[in-house]
Design a protein around this nucleic acid. Sequence first.
DNA 1: AAGAAAACCAACCGCGGGCGC
DNA 2: AGCGCCCGCGGTTGGTTTTCT
Length: 258
Amino acid sequence: MGRAPCCEKMGLKKGPWTHDEDQILISYIHQNGHANWRALPKQAGLLRCGKSCRLRWTNYLRPDIKRGNFTKEEEETIIKLHGTLGNRWSTIAARLPGRTDNEIKNVWHTRLKKRFKNYQRSCKLDSNGSSHESKAMDLSTCLAPNPGIESIKYEPASPQDSSSEFSSVTDQIGLPNNTVSKNNNQVYGSETLPWIDESYWSEELSAKNSISTDDLGFGFRFQLSPEKTSINTMTDDGMAFWYDLLVRAGGLPELPEF
DNA sequence: AAGAAAACCAACCGCGGGCGC
DNA sequence: AGCGCCCGCGGTTGGTTTTCT
């Protein structure tokens, strides 16, 4: 079928908006609203397509837009919401009054994503493993004020899942097999890390009592249980996994300085 | 001081959903 | 039911500004 390009018509202007164009658009919308974006530019006397007008208004000219740098709280909110919602920028923007989806998307791509990646890289274990403990504690610091993991129950995705597949899972999430054991579908770690306080987990997670890792591509389910379990070493991928898990659980604490 | 590289961000593009005809 | 229009969304681009060497 195919659709004609939005600005195909000759004479329609593209590129950065001028101050005069902004004033025309603002004035028109204040007087007439923006019920029909397609018809708006012609009625307002702008040589722009409706799409361009809508974008300029929603991303820049709207009176309720908050300009200026993002606060630390706003950045943390973006990271938390991105962890649970993914790239649903408009949904994230709806939770940040005065911020646009475009702005949030830009902040994520230009600053937050890189900072998070750098942090993961900084946590990467030494090849000789000598820094496992310290790096693990770095993670604990990262996850302060309630470091550690309360309890994780391993639940095979299907009845035929075996211990060998469990090993592949621990490989995937970066948990060395010798630090984790499986017994009656419980995953046990060593005792070297502090526990996560039960209050750490959100009400939402408590209600669900389980976290599906399908979204992460593992195809397994980890379920909370009353028994305490801890993990004492992690690779960067493992950290990314747990970090993601905590974000998804709504329990992301204050971010460390990167 | 100047050129290069990196960071930033406004704007564009194309897709898909909703809706009316 | 099918088609086409409109709008909103997410991905991407490219120009500008800032930082680095």
